[in-house]
Design a protein around this nucleic acid. Structure first.
Length: 693
DNA sequence: GAGAGATGTATTTTT
DNA sequence: TACATCTCTC
């Protein structure tokens, strides 16, 4: 204990009493309820650092699970900083990457014919397999909608219902079971399998279970409110001997229920772990009192909560603003002008705009571009989803795992060399007949001269290129160089032509080179799978000058001095598809709460009466969430003038008070002429005006 | 087998 | 409106 005191005294960080209590927690289960902006990462990292420093456990005896790569990198960085040296934490990472690592080390324990080079299939790959199965079995794609089936497969896996599930009908059951055996035969796993198979090993293999349970003296889980059923069980088993489970989360920020996150895991934590100590971090260090008050008021409408009251010592600044607009374009224009207007207070990188759906980003993008404001939109397509990058990945996947049918389909005729549908079917048949992987069946086909000269030549090119790649790899042992040669051999660069795409491919080659340098292995499987398990926000670059645009979901964990939350309308936020039950509404409210609590100094909310969606116009009213906060003293309601009338008294941020002279709305630009008290007569934008009573 | 036009579809998506 | 995917034709 004195060790810990010394350690804490020597820290540069200031901690409050509750944070210190949580860090001092010794053994046994603990739940840290950490509200938005309460310094939970600080607690988590100092806690881990103190364990290492005081030799309570080694870096390899500690399991720390996060939901994003970004979060685990951040943790490793901060722990290293506290301890003053760069340490390696082999078991700190996302649920999926840790499971992958463990499965790869123990693949021989897996049932089926998995080998260590198994592929990871992303949701797109899943869909392809499902579609194939439906087509092959001549079933109706409308009745057995692939994406619905995929959703079902995922939820069967993450809620552990696979064995007891009652299927809609035999056909659906057949599709789902075929899907699963198909993946096994392709030496592939989907995201759900990574966790499920780890879980299965723990439940089936007693030796394995005991090894894992003994290995991890301490188990940490970040964002505990987002764990699903299988993750709960996994954590439960792993920590059941040493009982040192340290979970950190905030039930008010549980926003992934629709992906299987089970909020009951955090709400009922005490029930599952009766000897739990609960620590609450209720002091908010991030936001102004106004922002916090409005957020608290909003979330107080939820019932799925634990008792927790956020407060702050921060100084008061401006009130939260609520703007109403005629339509989405006015809203976007207004934001662009506000950003320009407040540039002395908030630089581009201080500003973020959050929306409920990706489709809303377009108008915003257009208006920001017109105003010459630099911005970056997150979440649309991540780097690895670009077609040329997927091509490269598929080449490598196929080389590493020649059973991988999805990769095979993508690259067998890439670039086009005359191998079509029919030929592909035949190759597949031969592979099955000869019980060989696709790569081996190339040799078989070539030796037996099964196809036309043209096709044989084409297959030979692919086969030789792969051989050369392997040979080069042995000689130079550089994956990136060998792979570049491979792409040249195949004529892939000539086929691409497009400069942007070529650029992306060379960036991909850099990625490989970087991976080879930074990690000790030049193992292609490891590289591919780390790529499969990465996401768009992992690449997030900060400290660059642009406004951030993203969905509210992506904003979790971030903070910005100035935040705009747009489109807070009934039917959009809460979304019309999430309004069927109270718990859905509550999740939408939590989402809204997450959006609000990202703001440090300035929070600007808005809604529109009219919105263009998919070409047609929809009308909406103010969101119920705004109704819930509108009476707050910390909220300032501003009506951007919509129907302007002559002689109306108005205020303009630059020119002051004045009277509207004429209404010159041209091309929906919403412009009026105002005679200002200073005598100036000027055309101005309606959305820059405020009504004066 | 490849490209051109037709059709359908659009919530969020940590891995 | 905008995009991916499907279908049809050459």
């Amino acid at each position: 204990m004195t060790d810990l005191k010394n350690f804490l005294n020597n820290l540069n960080e200031k901690l409050n009493i509750n944070q210190i209590d949580a860090i001092k927690h010794e053994d046994g289960p603990a739940l840290v309820l950490a509200g938005a902006g309460s310094g939970k990462t600080r607690v988590l990292t100092i806690k881990i650092a103190s364990l290492i420093k005081n030799k309570k456990c080694g870096t390899n005896e500690l399991l720390a699970l996060t939901f994003t790569n970004k979060a685990s990198k951040e943790m490793i960085f901060r722990i290293s900083k506290i301890l003053g040296s760069k340490l390696d934490f082999p078991w700190m990472g996302t649920f999926h990457s840790i499971s992958y690592k463990i499965l790869r080390m123990n693949f021989e324990l897996l049932k089926g014919n998995y080998n260590s080079n198994f592929s990871i299939y992303d949701p797109t790959d899943q869909l392809k397999i499902i579609k194939n199965i439906i087509k092959i079995n001549d079933l109706d794609l409308n009745k057995y909608e692939p994406s619905r089936i995929r959703g079902k497969i995922d939820s069967l896996k993450n809620s552990l219902l696979y064995d007891e599930w009652e299927f809609e009908d035999d056909k659906e059951e057949q599709i789902i079971k075929t899907y699963q055996s198909k993946l096994e035969s392709l030496n592939a796993m989907d995201f759900g399998d990574l966790i499920l198979k780890f879980y299965e090993l723990l439940t089936i293999n007693k030796n394995f279970k005991e090894r894992i349970q003994k290995l991890f003296k301490y188990v940490f889980v970040d964002e505990y409110q987002d764990t699903n059923i299988i993750q709960f069980r996994l954590i439960n088993i792993i920590s059941s001997i040493n009982k040192n489970l340290f979970a950190v989360g905030d039930e008010d920020q549980s926003i992934y229920g629709w992906r299987g996150a089970n909020i009951e895991n955090i709400l009922q934590f005490k029930k599952f772990y009766p000897e739990t100590k609960i620590y609450k971090l209720e002091q908010n260090y991030r936001s102004t009192p106004q922002i916090l008050n409005v957020s608290n008021l909003l979330i107080s409408n939820n019932s799925e909560r634990l008792e927790k009251n956020m407060w702050t010592e921060n100084v008061k600044k401006e009130n939260v603003k609520l703007w109403s607009f005629n339509d989405d374009r006015e809203e976007a224009k207004h934001i662009a002008r506000e950003i320009m207007k407040n540039l002395d207070l908030y630089k581009y990188e201080d500003v973020a705009v959050f929306y409920r759906t990706n489709a809303q980003s377009r108008v915003l993008e257009e208006e920001l571009r017109k105003a010459n404001i630099k911005y970056k939109i997150y979440g649309n397509i991540s780097f690895y989803e670009r077609s040329e990058v997927k091509d490269c990945i598929s080449f490598l996947k196929f080389i590493v795992n020649p059973d991988d049918e999805i990769a095979f389909d993508r690259i067998i005729n890439l670039p086009s060399r005359g191998i079509g549908k029919k030929t592909i079917e035949k190759i597949k048949k031969i592979s099955i007949q000869e019980d060989q992987n696709y790569y081996k069946s190339f040799s078989y086909i070539i030796e037996n001269n099964i196809f036309s000269k043209k096709i044989i030549k084409s297959l030979e090119l692919l086969k030789n290129s792969i051989n050369n790649f392997k040979k080069n790899l042995d000689e130079f042992s550089s994956v990136s160089e060998s792979f570049e040669k491979f792409l040249i051999d195949l004529g892939y660069f000539d086929y691409l032509k497009d400069d942007d795409k070529l650029g992306n491919v060379s960036e991909f080659l850099n990625y490989i080179a970087e991976f080879e340098l930074s990690s000790d292995s030049n193992d292609i499987s490891d590289f591919l799978n780390s790529l499969m398990l990465s996401s768009s926000t992992d690449e997030m670059v900060d400290s660059q000058s642009f406004v951030t645009l993203m969905t509210v979901h992506l904003s979790k964990g971030l903070e910005f001095p100035c935040v705009y939350v747009v489109g807070i309308e009934e039917g959009l936020f809460p979304h019309s598809r999430s309004m069927y039950s109270t718990s859905e509404i509550e999740e939408e409210r939590r989402l809204c709460y997450v959006a609000f609590t990202r703001a440090i100094s300035s929070l600007n909310l808005s809604y529109c009466k009219m919105r263009r969606m998919f070409g047609s116009i929809t009308y909406a009213s103010m969101s119920q969430f705004l109704d819930e906060i509108i009476e707050s003293d910390d909220l300032l309601e501003i009506n951007a003038i919509s129907e302007t009338t002559s002689n109306e008294r108005v205020f303009h941020y630059k020119f002051g008070n004045g009277f509207i002279d004429t209404n010159d709305n041209d091309n929906f630009e919403d412009v009026v002429t105002v005679v200002f008290d200073s005598g100036i007569k000027k055309k101005v934008f309606v959305s820059d005006l405020e009504e004066i009573e």
